[in-house]
Structure formats: C-alpha cells, structure tokens
Amino acid sequence: NQASVVANQLIPISTHLTLVMMRSEVVTPVGIPAEDIPRLVSMQVNRAVPLGTTLMPDMVKGYA
C-alpha cells in the first residue's frame, strides 16, 4: 500500500505548503504520493483543505 499526502491541519486557500502542514498516511482513495512531499513545499493549494483530507493533484497549483 502506497502512502499519500494528507493535510495535518486546515490549509486555507492559496496557502504555500510547508512540511508541518502535511503527513503521509495510507488512505483510500490514493492521492499525491508521500514521496512527493519535498516537491510540494512552497506550492500553493487552490482550495481550502480540511484537516485529514488527502491531497489530490488538482488541489495543488502547478503539481499536475
């Protein structure tokens, strides 16, 4: 099972991601792979992401 990136807190819209905001967890459905966490740092979310939500490629500007 592959770990995905999950929000560690509420991430407001247009926030630049930091390591503190993300954790890796095995979830269904599978989202952005956990090994991409370093790549996600300083990218922006294009919507509010609630605590515990799996980050999907379409939620992060410039990821997909």
Rank of each mutant, 00 (worst) to 15 (best):
I37A: 09
G62H: 13
L10N: 15
H16E: 08
K61M: 14
K61W: 14
S14L: 13
N46V: 14
D58T: 10
I37L: 13
I11G: 00
G62Q: 07
R23C: 05
R47Q: 07
I32N: 01
I32Y: 02
Q2S: 13
Q44L: 07
L19I: 08
P57G: 07
A48W: 10
N1P: 13
L19Y: 14
V27S: 05
V60H: 01
S4L: 02
L51C: 11
V5S: 03
V20T: 14
Q2T: 13
Q44R: 13
L10W: 10
Q9M: 14
G62F: 09
T54P: 08
N8Y: 03
V5F: 03
N1D: 15
K61C: 15
E35Q: 10
V45F: 02
M22R: 00
E35H: 11
L10I: 11
D58F: 11
L17S: 00
S42T: 12
M56R: 08
E35Y: 10
S24V: 11
H16W: 10
V49E: 02
T53Q: 11
V20E: 09
R47L: 08
V45N: 01
I11A: 01
A3E: 12
A34Q: 07
D58I: 09
D58S: 11
V45A: 05
V45Y: 00
P38E: 09
V49P: 02
A7H: 02
E35C: 13
V30Y: 14
S14V: 04
Q2G: 15
L51F: 13
V41S: 02
L51I: 12
T15N: 04
P50H: 08
L19W: 15
V41M: 08
V5A: 12
I13H: 14
V30R: 06
T53N: 09
A48C: 15
L40T: 02
M22V: 06
V27D: 02
M56I: 08
D36H: 14
A3G: 13
L17V: 01
T28Y: 10
R23K: 10
T28H: 12
D36W: 08
V6C: 06
A48H: 10
Q2Y: 15
V26L: 12
T18A: 09
S42N: 15
K61D: 12
L17I: 11
V5I: 11
V30A: 11
T54N: 02
L55F: 13
E35L: 09
R47H: 07
Q2F: 13
R39N: 09
R23G: 06
S4V: 02
V30K: 08
K61V: 15
G52E: 04
G52F: 05
E25W: 07
L19C: 11
T18M: 13
M21P: 00
L55C: 03
S4E: 01
A7C: 04
I13M: 12
G52V: 02
A64E: 11
Q9T: 14
T18F: 03
Y63S: 03
P33S: 09
T54F: 03
R47A: 07
L17K: 00
R47W: 06
P33N: 09
A34K: 06
P29E: 06
A7V: 06
T54W: 03
M21S: 03
T28W: 08
R23L: 04
T28M: 10
T15A: 14
M43E: 04
R23H: 05
M43A: 07
N1I: 15
A3R: 07
D36Q: 14
V49N: 02
L51H: 12
I32A: 02
A7D: 00
L19Q: 07
I32T: 01
A3T: 09
I11H: 01
E35M: 10
P12N: 07
M59L: 04
S24Y: 10
P38R: 09
V20P: 07
P12E: 10
R47S: 10
V60F: 05
Q2D: 14
Y63M: 04
Q2P: 14
V45H: 00
R39V: 08
A64Q: 14
M21A: 03
R23W: 04
L55Y: 01
T15M: 09
S42G: 14
P50T: 10
D58A: 09
I11V: 05
E35D: 09
T28Q: 12
P29W: 04
G62I: 04
E35W: 10
I11E: 00
G31R: 02
P12V: 05
M59K: 01
D36T: 07
D58L: 11
I37P: 01
T15W: 09
G31E: 01
N1T: 15
I37V: 06
E35F: 10
T53G: 11
S42W: 14
P38A: 12
R39P: 02
M43F: 10
M22D: 00
L51T: 13
H16Q: 12
I37N: 00
Y63F: 09
P50L: 14
G31N: 01
G31S: 02
P33H: 09
T54H: 02
D36A: 13
V30G: 08
V49A: 04
V60Q: 00
S42V: 04
P12S: 07
I37M: 12
V45E: 00
E25L: 10
L10G: 12
L51Y: 15
S42R: 10
M43G: 02
M56V: 07
L19V: 06
V27P: 01
A3K: 08
L19H: 08
G31Q: 00
M59N: 05
Q9G: 04
R23Q: 04
S14K: 11
A64T: 15
L19A: 12
M22C: 03
I37R: 06
V60G: 01
M59D: 13
E25G: 12
H16P: 15
G62W: 08
R23D: 05
I11M: 03
G31H: 02
Q9H: 08
A48D: 15
L55D: 01
S24N: 07
M22Y: 01
V45K: 00
P29T: 05
P38G: 12
P57H: 09
N1G: 15
P50G: 12
K61Y: 13
L55H: 01
T18D: 05
V20G: 12
R23N: 05
T18S: 10
G31M: 02
M59P: 01
R47M: 11
M21E: 00
V27A: 07
N46M: 13
V5W: 02
S24G: 15
V60T: 02
P38C: 14
V49Q: 02
D36I: 06
V20Y: 14
V20F: 15
A48S: 15
V5H: 01
S42Q: 10
M59Y: 12
A48T: 15
M43Q: 07
I13R: 13
S24D: 06
V49G: 01
I11N: 01
M22L: 14
V5P: 01
V26M: 12
P38M: 09
Q9R: 10
V20I: 11
M21I: 03
L40C: 03
V49D: 02
G62D: 11
L40Q: 00
V27Y: 03
T54E: 02
Q9Y: 15
A3L: 12
A48I: 14
N46K: 09
L19K: 07
M43Y: 07
V41G: 00
T28R: 05
P50D: 09
L17R: 00
Q2L: 10
D58C: 15
I37F: 02
V6Y: 02
S42I: 03
T28P: 00
R47P: 01
A64S: 13
S42E: 07
G52D: 11
I37G: 03
T18K: 07
K61Q: 15
V49T: 04
H16S: 14
L10T: 11
V60W: 03
E35T: 14
N8K: 08
P38H: 14
T15K: 06
V41Y: 03
T53F: 12
D58E: 12
E25R: 08
A3V: 07
T54G: 00
Y63K: 03
I32S: 01
I32D: 00
P12A: 09
G52Y: 04
S42F: 15
S42L: 09
V5R: 02
A3Y: 12
P29G: 03
V6A: 02
R39H: 08
V27C: 06
N46L: 15
V49H: 03
A34I: 06
L55W: 03
Q2H: 10
A48K: 13
G62Y: 09
L40M: 06
G52C: 04
T15P: 00
Q44S: 13
I13D: 10
L55K: 01
V27N: 03
A7P: 02
P57K: 07
K61A: 14
V49K: 01
A34D: 08
N46S: 13
Q44T: 15
P29D: 07
T28I: 11
M56C: 13
T28V: 11
G31F: 02
T53C: 09
A7K: 02
D36F: 11
V27R: 10
S24H: 08
Q9E: 12
M22I: 08
M59T: 05
A3S: 12
S24A: 12
L55G: 02
P38N: 12
P57R: 07
L40R: 01
T28G: 06
G52I: 03
N46D: 10
P50Y: 14
D36Y: 11
V30T: 14
Q9A: 11
P38S: 13
P38T: 12
L55R: 02
N46T: 10
